[in-house]
């Protein structure tokens, strides 16, 4: 365990994060959309998800490890599921809070349900959805530390090694890059936010 192993571990960590967030984003978006079409279901589904969300990631990864063993899939599925929650919640919240006047206008203009969703509702909910993606990204960077717990590498390796050998330097060697990674990925999502938020909805002063 030395600084020479850092680039590989960082890359591994980044890979865990990006793939899991990608899975979580797609899953969260689709489920969020489905839930927003049937708001009556949300009264049941959202509380269940919240309860599920409170199960510590370490417990969930541990359980999945017991069932599936030490596979890449174990980590990606576990992190992916956790990454789903913020996106799902924000997608649902964003779609539900679209001002009804726009939905009525869309229907009145002769848009089908799908056209209304893709041309009007999703663009209007986009700032909230991307907010969910940001949360999900930053969380996943920290949860990905757990991958090393089942021997799959990433920055967690340094932290666990440091903890077990009482080497603070080693802990920091894992923790600081993880924190920086969270910061950098968060900033990247912010950059994305500026591109996907419809021009007409950006605050004054942000117009190019």
């Amino acid at each position: 365990m030395s600084i020479h192993d850092l680039p590989a571990a960082l890359l591994q960590h980044l890979m865990f994060t990006v793939i899991s967030v990608a899975i979580g984003f797609v899953l969260g978006l689709v489920l969020g959309i489905l839930l927003s079409r049937k708001p009556s279901l949300s009264g049941v589904v959202l509380p269940i998800l919240s309860v599920f969300n409170t199960i510590p990631g370490i417990v969930f990864i541990g359980l999945l490890f017991l069932v599936w063993g030490s596979h890449l899939a174990t980590v990606l599925v576990a992190l992916g599921i956790y990454a789903t929650f913020p996106v799902l919640k924000n997608t649902y919240a964003g779609l539900i809070s679209v001002d009804p006047q726009y939905i009525e206008a869309a229907r009145g203009c002769g848009m089908s349900a799908g056209q209304s969703l893709f041309r009007v509702e999703l663009p209007l909910a986009m700032p909230t959805i991307i907010g969910g993606l940001r949360m999900s990204t930053v969380y996943t960077v920290s949860w990905a530390v757990l991958a090393s717990m089942i021997g799959l590498g990433g920055l967690g390796t340094f932290i666990y090694a440091g903890l077990s050998s009482n080497d603070n330097g080693l802990i920091l060697l894992g923790a600081i890059p993880a924190a920086l990674l969270a910061f950098v990925l968060g900033s990247l999502v912010d950059l994305l936010q500026r591109h996907v938020v419809p021009k007409g909805m950006r605050k004054a002063g942000e117009h190019a």
Binding site: E104, A105, V120, L124, P198
Partner: peptide, 13 residues
């Protein structure tokens, strides 16, 4: 169809 709240789509020019 014209509505009271106007309902122009804010994401479109």
């Amino acid at each position: 169809y014209v509505i009271q709240q106007i309902g122009l789509f804010p994401n479109m020019t």
